[in-house]
């Protein structure tokens, strides 16, 4: 898929180019397939497990940028319902993870 290729391309680019993010990139490239979030270095903590942490978006945005089309009521396909449909700028808190 074109999007997938592009993502891979960015990751490959990053390995060569992100001089400041060696640790980060190691984490990124070691676990991208599982969708799991890398540990924070040294503390071993995973932020996403914390109370109230906004979960990252675990899929591509191949159906457009309007998350609420699927997530407002839920059950469109298998999309889970958002507990706060009143917050429309979803990507303010939820970052892409794939």
């Amino acid at each position: 898929m074109e999007q997938h290729k592009r993502l891979l391309f960015f990751i490959v680019c990053s390995v060569f180019l992100l001089m400041l993010g060696v640790l980060t990139l190691t984490a990124c490239s070691s676990q991208p397939q599982s969708g799991e979030i890398a540990d924070i270095s040294k503390t071993g903590l995973q932020q996403e497990v914390l109370t109230g942490f906004p979960p990252p978006i675990p899929h591509k945005l191949d159906r457009g940028d309007d998350c609420l089309v699927c997530h407002r009521q839920g059950e469109v396909g298998e999309a889970p319902k958002t507990p706060h449909p009143e917050n429309i700028p979803c990507r303010q808190c939820h970052v892409l993870s794939e």
Binding site: S14, L23, T24, C28, I37, A38, Q47, V95, L96
Partner: peptide, 15 residues
């Protein structure tokens, strides 16, 4: 210098 340290943010926007 700061956001570049966060794996999740980097993965969301790598470049």
């Amino acid at each position: 210098t700061m956001t570049g340290k966060c794996p999740a943010l980097n993965r969301a926007v790598p470049s």
